[in-house]
Design a protein around this nucleic acid. Structure first.
Lengths: 232, 232
DNA sequence: CCAAAAGTGTTCACGCTACACCCATGC
DNA sequence: GCATGGGTGTAGCGTGAACACTTTTGG
């Protein structure tokens, strides 16, 4: 090996898994399964394996702990404070993931003792996980303004009001319903379905689905998703 | 050690060093000093040491190869393709750095055989360095719109025209001089100095300097730097 | 008929664009 | 005085904010 004289490091991935429910942005946490700090609240994580990339490792962790594949996932950054993990010199690369909380396998929740926490009520976390969460949160907020990733947190079909509530949860703000609707509609990325959701009003609200194909076509033509000018 | 059964990895940092000169955004490259691929064009890099963070390592590399400290630097992301480095399983964490090309020590340039390349004329790079550069470039473009980092690439004192030319180089576009000037001025982040630069016009253009303190004060009050609506 | 949420219309103000125009100065 | 880049003025347009208004339907 060429680099024999160089130091080697343990490499971990930590997943900041976001979900949305009850008008709240939530975070999936589990009691840490191994020493040190066993039992304390932690992000879902694991070590990177020999033959896998960090992205592979993060997907493996996500699938194992949520039962879901094809999850939206993005690297946040590497965390490398020398003493961040009392168990050894471990560099952690964080990812944030967005999942539709309804698809989440409740059995796995029990199996790992995992729980969803509202982002306003996050318990004490091990190591530097609070910093990681804070960082992931910022990246989510930054990204959601300029890429259509909010849809990842909603069911396949949703109403405009649900979408607005989601953005209100992400940005902790209130948005003018009329203006939000027009802003989203003007992008022409949603397909209106022939059904209405009557759960929240007598009149009923049309359901929409995000059309990925339209988005890609428009993007190829120079279009950019952008809701950053909607009072956030 | 708690994690004895886990695999360990070599950890490198690679620095994408941007500079600005002759109306062009430039990148500092050096011939790779070690095997494999010795002598081919590569990013400035190095291995992470035992007692340092990745940020420490990147700063060490930057200081060694540019002679400069207190450089603006930001993590891009980790690159972990299994075969990205034929010399071994090396995970690389990339950083992008912005330096004032005038402060750069030309002796070091000779010492390392380093060269500045216009970002439009980047030679073939080793490993996945082209991908790293592409990624860093995107992050620079994204960041420069919403944070006042352009100034890092200019001398302490600069004219509004110079600043505009810089943004034109970053975004490969042309900007209306009158409108750009007003946009920047409206943020009230620049101090006008009592001198003029007469290099580029008979009338002379006032020199300005970026006032970091004002920026921090305004930021604390909810102000956000944003030039994203200046035809970019 | 009424309440309540969905959805539409309309006004206002601000900010970006485009371009005309003045300013200062070295030759 | 004129060419050149610095710098200002300004009209027009587009878009977001605010809020009034209409629509639909279960009780």
């Amino acid at each position: 090996m060429t680099y024999n004289d160089k130091k080697q490091f343990y490499l971990a991935v930590d997943c900041v898994i976001f979900g949305y429910e009850d008008y709240k942005l939530k975070l999936l946490l589990q009691p840490r399964p191994i020493e040190p700090s066993k039992g304390e609240w932690a992000l879902m994580g694991g070590f990177c394996g020999d033959a896998e990339t960090l992205e592979n490792a993060a997907n493996r962790v996500l699938e194992k702990t949520t039962g879901l594949t094809n999850i939206y996932m993005k690297q946040v950054q590497a965390f490398s404070q020398v003493n961040r993990d009392p168990g050894g010199r471990v560099i952690s690369v964080a990812f944030f993931a967005l999942i539709n909380i309804r698809n989440y396998d409740d059995d796995l929740l029990k199996q790992y003792g995992a729980q969803w926490f509202s982002i306003e009520e996050i318990p004490n976390l091990i190591f530097d996980h609070a910093e990681i969460v804070e960082n992931a949160m910022q990246q989510l907020r930054r990204t959601a303004k300029i890429q259509p990733i909010g849809f990842e947190l909603l069911p396949e079909n949703f109403t405009i009001t649900q979408l607005r509530n989601l953005y209100e949860a992400i940005y902790q703000c209130t948005l003018e319903p009329a203006n939000f609707r027009r802003k989203i509609m003007s992008m022409k990325l949603l397909d209106r379905l022939p059904f209405k959701d009557k759960n929240s009003s007598r009149k009923g609200a049309y359901l929409y689905s995000f059309n990925q194909e339209k988005y890609e076509n428009l993007s190829a033509q120079g279009f950019s998703f952008d809701i950053s000018h909607a009072q956030m």
